[in-house]
Design a protein around this nucleic acid. Structure first.
Ligand SMILES: [Mn+2]
Ligand SMILES: [Mn+2]
Ligand SMILES: [Zn+2]
Ligand SMILES: [Zn+2]
Lengths: 141, 141
DNA sequence: GCAGGTTTTTTGAATTTGTCTATTTCTAAA
DNA sequence: TTTAGAAATAGACAAATTCAAAAAACCTGC
């Protein structure tokens, strides 16, 4: 989605545009996600959301993140075997994953990486997405 | 490793070349993995291994797969949030992941896909690997 | 405003993958 | 042989996620 500093009303519009009924909990979760382009795990959303007072349960977080992903509001990133990251930036871009720190970064948009001669897909299938992940580690030296 | 139809002695040599003490259990596991280039989860290895009589425990499977990956005998693929796949082909290649079936395929070696203008890595980091995953789904129509 | 139906949220238990620990068993070398 | 270290095992444990059932919120027509 690639948005920044959304008001409550903006967020409501975003959900409506994507065919999602804007409930109190969904708005709270969306407001966290779309505060800026970022990569958050369910657990991170959960703890940010309920920092002061409980605003939604764990199951609601999972339901909501799954719903947002299905509706194309966020993008699921599978880079770490222990958790899913949700990317609030759904525009076309790729990632660095630092295996030492567990941190995930975008490949800068101004990078002019290109992939040529895409392979033929297996018969009877269509592409859903292409994920390129640079697994990096800290220089040990 | 990209090998096929290995004898017990071949497999033993393979482990030794990679600095791995060839124990009974490791040989059994290696023989399954290197029977042909394939993508197996720990659970699949476990059930194939112990089809007839128990040959190794769950912990040994995890230990062994982790050791093989660390020593470069197999490659870990993170494409499914629920499990790790171990690829017995460590040569440079990329993957199709069918999200409908959960099946993983190699991009054919004769595909002439190329990635150009690789981005600069973040400071203080070095690349460990680059994974390209085509997430595909079945044509619904 | 209120019943009746529908959607959403919540809780807590269950499931799954994977890890840890303590104990036993091997292995290889002296 | 003895013995120290490496490896394997069973079973308890942990973390992420899912599920099922009940409660709460919402909606629509009266
Ligand atoms: Mn896992
Ligand atoms: Mn998982
Ligand atoms: Zn991103
Ligand atoms: Zn492969």
């Amino acid at each position: 989605m690639m948005t920044t500093g959304l008001t409550r009303t903006d967020v409501r519009g975003l959900l409506l545009e994507h065919g999602i009924t804007p409930t109190k909990q969904r708005l709270e979760i969306a407001q966290i996600l779309f505060a800026r382009p970022q990569h958050l795990s369910a657990e991170q959303v959960l703890s940010r959301l309920n920092e002061e007072r409980p605003k939604a349960s764990k199951a609601t977080i999972y339901n909501t993140l799954g719903l947002f992903a299905q509706k194309g509001l966020v993008r699921e990133l599978i880079v770490d075997p222990t958790k899913i990251f949700y990317d609030s930036n759904t525009s076309d871009h790729h990632h660095f994953y630092n295996v030492d720190t567990g941190k995930l970064f975008d490949v800068p948009a101004d990078s002019n990486m290109v992939v040529d001669n895409l392979p033929n897909l297996p018969d009877g299938t269509v592409a859903e997405s292409v994920d390129i992940i640079f697994r990096i580690k800290n220089k040990s030296n």
